[in-house]
Design a protein around this nucleic acid. Sequence first.
DNA 1: ATTGAGACCTGTCGGC
DNA 2: TGCCGACAGGTCTCAA
Length: 275
Amino acid sequence: MPELPEVEAARRRLDPFFTGYRIDDVVLRRPDLRAPFPRRFRARLVGRSVVTFTRRAKYLLATMSSGETLLMHLGMSGSLRVNCRPTGDDRSVNARHDHVVFAMSSGAAIIFNDPRRFGLMDLLTRRQLDAHPALSTLGFEPLSQDFDAAALAGACYRRNAPLKVALLDQKTVAGLGNIYASEALHAACLSPLRKASSIATAAGEPQPAACQLVTAIKQVLEKAVERQTARTYQAARFRVYDREGAKCLRPGCGGTVRRRVQAGRSTYYCPRCQR
DNA sequence: ATTGAGACCTGTCGGC
DNA sequence: TGCCGACAGGTCTCAA
């Protein structure tokens, strides 16, 4: 279930097994995911060490001692797990969809599993990284300092698309996905149907709605990252997502959650308290 | 320039 | 029980 919080949680979980260690082996169990693996993928990785392991939007980036960057995307159904004892006791049910295994000098095996294969792995030179079409067009990183009301208003200024659709666009906010876009709009009491431009003035300055929305996005994402990172697993509980027909959880609202399709994706919202 | 529809692929769930 | 359609957390491309 990879949106920004899931990807960030995966990064934190893997980092201690990845950063500073050498890749001793790469096993590719099929020729492609969403796209073919790049040429000489294995040869360019084996023997190199991971220097840094970072996240940008929903992408994971491992910079290697060779100077190249391993780029990973989990797509819709991808996940990464660590097996500390590769010699035997991995009891994963899904081994059928284990497509890539990195054997690290830490002794850990890092396994990429992705049933739907919408995920992606690529290996980029410095030059390719800087010019990458998907990465270079990404918008603000929502948990960073420079994502504030003015930034969001600027990104939504003069956009006719519905607010929810604009939020899903990675050029607006990098890493928001379908669940947390709905959740953030509900937290901010803003309708997903209103025009994106309505949170900015005619001059592109932030309206109060832009402040509410920025605060809500940060809160919703931070809470989700925390929950995902917690040692004891806690099942996700959403306030609106996937709750069509149920009572709005905002105290005193009494509305009913509705579902509708925007840009081909399900949006959940409470028409009573989201304006 | 934006926007919507369709494509990519497998798994799961509800209805009959 | 089994078959079938609808749908799922993301992104890309193509046509209007």
